[in-house]
Computed example of a mutant assay.
Amino acid sequence: MVRLLEKRQRTGSVLTIFAIASFSVHILILFLLLLQGLNIRQLSLRKPPNFVQLIDGKPVANIDDLAREPEAIRRFISKTMISMFSWSGTLPAQTIEEVANPKSDLGVLISTPQGSGQKISTSTWVASFALSEDFRKGFLSTVAEMTPPEVFSENPNQAMTSQLVIKRVYPPKQIAPGKWQVGMVADLIQKNRVGGARLITPFNKDFLVRATDYFANPQAESSTDLQKAIYSIRADRLENYEIRNLCLLDNYNSLSQDTSKECGTGQTSDSFIR
């Protein structure tokens, strides 16, 4: 009888130890799962690593989120403005067949302050995503007002083209952490396709640029050509948030540091084409 009781006690002790050990293991697993969940959440909220485009176009990781190479900033301004103000009436070729027979650009309808809708070129609309959101809407309205309807004309005798010819882009001047001022000297040339009559308008501007975050396209494989173009614009991690008139002194040889001599002091994008 005594031996039977001892066996029962030993069996009970083993079961108790086993139950406690199992419970402890479950508590440890639960703790590890909670810790893993917190780590995953932190990763999802973390900004992607900042890549800066160098002069040769190769992206490299940069520890400073606000640092940008001067030449990358100048290239950003140049390619954005050329895309913004080069109107051919056709869409960029996506295939070999479209090189010989380009598609007509139907344009994008934009509301103007007068309440009427006017068209801008598709390349202008895509390039406008390089502007800050609060600046973009007013800028597009101004560009719509200056875009001749003849750009979208199917009549070759009336059709017009526009091209921005850049003469010089000044080295970026840092005005704050992650913000730069860049001067550009250029001409906006509008030309009739038939006859070749040209209208040349000086386009000498100061661009205020700042560093921004960028998130890659989550569905790059299924994206349209238009979506890919927009994402490529934002991939430079820069945006233009203001355009001012630029005074040209000393025959383009230097960018004046005296703000009192700037053309149109106090004027912003509302008069950027004048």
Rank of each mutant, 00 (worst) to 15 (best):
F207Y: 01
D250T: 12
G266R: 01
D225R: 14
I189R: 05
R198T: 07
F207G: 02
K261F: 09
T212P: 02
N217P: 06
D187W: 01
V209S: 06
E242W: 03
D258K: 07
D236F: 07
Y241G: 04
S260R: 05
A216F: 08
R244Y: 03
A211I: 01
A197V: 12
K205W: 01
K205D: 05
Y214Q: 04
A197D: 14
L255H: 02
A235M: 14
A197C: 09
D250R: 13
K261P: 03
A235H: 02
N251C: 08
S222G: 13
S232M: 11
Q227G: 09
L255C: 03
E262T: 06
E242M: 08
K191H: 10
L188I: 06
R237F: 01
S222F: 05
S223D: 08
F272A: 08
D236T: 07
A220C: 06
K261G: 09
L249F: 03
L238Q: 00
N251P: 05
S260F: 04
A235V: 08
R237G: 03
S232N: 15
I243T: 04
K191L: 09
A216Y: 00
Q219V: 10
D270M: 10
D258E: 07
G196L: 06
F207T: 00
F215D: 15
G264F: 00
K228N: 15
N204H: 03
K205T: 07
L199Y: 09
R237K: 11
R234K: 14
I243L: 06
D206W: 06
T212Y: 03
Y241W: 06
L199A: 13
Y241P: 01
G264P: 00
S254V: 12
I200V: 10
Y231C: 09
E221R: 12
D206E: 12
I243A: 05
A220P: 01
F272S: 02
K205I: 01
